[in-house]
Design a binder for these strands. Structure first.
Lengths: 111, 111
DNA sequence: AATCGGCGCTATCAAAAACGTAGCATGGAT
DNA sequence: ATCCATGCTACGTTTTTGATAGCGCCGATT
């Protein structure tokens, strides 16, 4: 009934989007992309940039990001974003802007 | 040295952005926002829309999203996005576009 | 040649998050 | 009174993440 109407209106979440959302839902995944925005970083520099990530998880994430073609490994420079990774970074830029609006709104509410 | 140069160039990840990235890194968090894009959904409808999320985690996420002012609860309608939530949805729209480009690129590579 | 330090990465164990399932309480419809 | 859907909690298991230690490699220094 009400549910049925909504099902009619809903465009179901696409497979690529579901995959992207699943990627985003792994801890540190987007943070790693974000930290690579300034250019290539070595494994250890990346670890430091993220603050407290453990090397095993970082390794996990880098594999996942490489499998998806978001990050690539450069022999003597460490890791850097691919073209797809750069475009993801653009998306994260929008998230960055949103995040500052969000805190502004929350300060507003607390008044 | 090389590291030092990068530190000079790097604008450190802001607190709001780090918080947003932490939010994104919890499983289902963005997916829930995405599923709410079409309008309010009840707890169980949301659960079904996400596919396999367990009710305890959904409950967890809804609390987190409500605390941040992204989602609100409407007495007889369930949950819906706030104004901030709608703006986050706009960001996710960019992610959606990116996700289809990503799979196109990966198909390209496999040729 | 020997030492050293930084590097990428693995191993291991502990803690936390997420899952799957069952079920309770409520409130409206029959 | 009964039924049913809903929001949500409880609980035991599995998965993920965390913290720490340390290995093998390589290039620079002495």
């Amino acid at each position: 009934m009400a549910q049925r109407v909504q099902n009619l209106r809903r465009a179901p979440t696409s497979v690529p989007m579901a995959s992207a959302l699943a990627l985003s839902g792994r801890r540190w995944a987007f943070r790693i992309v974000w930290e690579l925005r300034v250019g290539p970083l070595s494994f250890r520099a990346l670890q430091a940039a993220c603050g407290t990530i453990s090397p095993s998880v970082l390794q996990h994430r880098l594999h996942g990001l490489r499998d998806r073609g978001i990050v690539e490994r450069i022999p003597r420079l460490g890791y850097r974003l691919t073209a797809s990774g750069e475009r993801l970074f653009q998306v994260l830029t929008a998230l960055d802007k949103w995040s500052v609006c969000l805190v502004k709104d929350s300060l507003q509410r607390d008044k």
